[in-house]
Design a protein around this nucleic acid. Sequence first.
DNA 1: GTCGACTGTTAATGAGCGTTAACCATTTCT
DNA 2: AGAAATGGTTAACGCTCATTAACAGTCGAC
Lengths: 199, 199
Amino acid sequence: MVTRTGAAGRREQILREAARLFAERGFHGVGVDEIGAAVGISGPGLYRHFAGKDAMLAELLVGISGQLLTGAKRRLAEADGAAGPMAVLDSLIEGHIDFALDDRPLITLHDRELDRLRDSDRKLVRQLQRQYVELWVEALRAAYPGLAEPAARSAVHSVFGLLNSTPHLGRPGSLPGRATTAALLHRMARGAFAAAGAD
Amino acid sequence: MVTRTGAAGRREQILREAARLFAERGFHGVGVDEIGAAVGISGPGLYRHFAGKDAMLAELLVGISGQLLTGAKRRLAEADGAAGPMAVLDSLIEGHIDFALDDRPLITLHDRELDRLRDSDRKLVRQLQRQYVELWVEALRAAYPGLAEPAARSAVHSVFGLLNSTPHLGRPGSLPGRATTAALLHRMARGAFAAAGAD
DNA sequence: GTCGACTGTTAATGAGCGTTAACCATTTCT
DNA sequence: AGAAATGGTTAACGCTCATTAACAGTCGAC
């Protein structure tokens, strides 16, 4: 049989389609038969790859949080030392925008379906999210030393809201082009932070 | 019997609790028994007030969109003429922030459960939302004449994302005070718009 | 060549849940 | 007083849906 999706295994294919469907209609709004149909198998066949529907969501959410965190850590390590604190912040913003534009369904899931998880998984995801936020808060306060910690935390969450608005920006075709959109989002995030830093 | 909630009728009480529960666990994640329990009656008693679970969600979403739109129109009418275009924009921002801070559950529902509606209701809500966005786009382009229309539209959606981040800002107690938070959000929205306007 | 491992299939099971039915207490209007 | 409207109750129905059971084809290893 020819695999249409290149070297992506069935698991990855299933996860990608499940993410899309969950983002479109919510975790409870999509059935396992539908997920199966999206990858060409039907219903219970999914159970050869995942322990259950919950396990797919868990793997997705843990994966997202992990990717975001490790990406941010990598960027911090790269940008550290040489460039100033503003460049560090820029790098974080750029990374988050890339993610928001390339994996819109995952961004949607990220803050929408967290409470459907088992306790242990939810705790893990929250911990990863918390670390990610913490990196941003530190970078932001390094760039704007006058900013108090609670205000910085609020500002970071607000900018996440701004950057994560990509799913509302109309379908990919209607955007003025990826690079243009990315640049606009970047400028706005910088502007929002600068305004937050001016007390 | 003493009504604990002042003059609020049962319908309003039910809607308020349903909004809270829907926002917390999603439309499909909460059962009618739960909604009933939240207002002291149980399960099917709700059907004396609403045609069904869908009807509650529909009334909530239509109500939100309508409130936002009429509030914005009122503010535009009041601020028109005298003050400059920047003051108009500020008034819109202020109104949206008030709403986001006072009705956090509704803000959450607003962009999360739209597709659970019947076609006719969904069309209505979308139309109201579109009109609301249009008011903002016009106000923004009046304040920043150099801004092209697609960029302005993207910028408006992004600032909505920023302002609607209030549910992620921690429970009411952990905020540094409502006025402080409102001021921070306002500054950031202005800053984001200014950065979008600088092409 | 045949024995597992792997990946599917369809049918059955069982729980959850929205909705309706049938019934009852209380208030309100005439 | 009595009738109707109002706002509840519990029990039952029926559908959806995740999960499991039982079965089967394919294919590499020994």
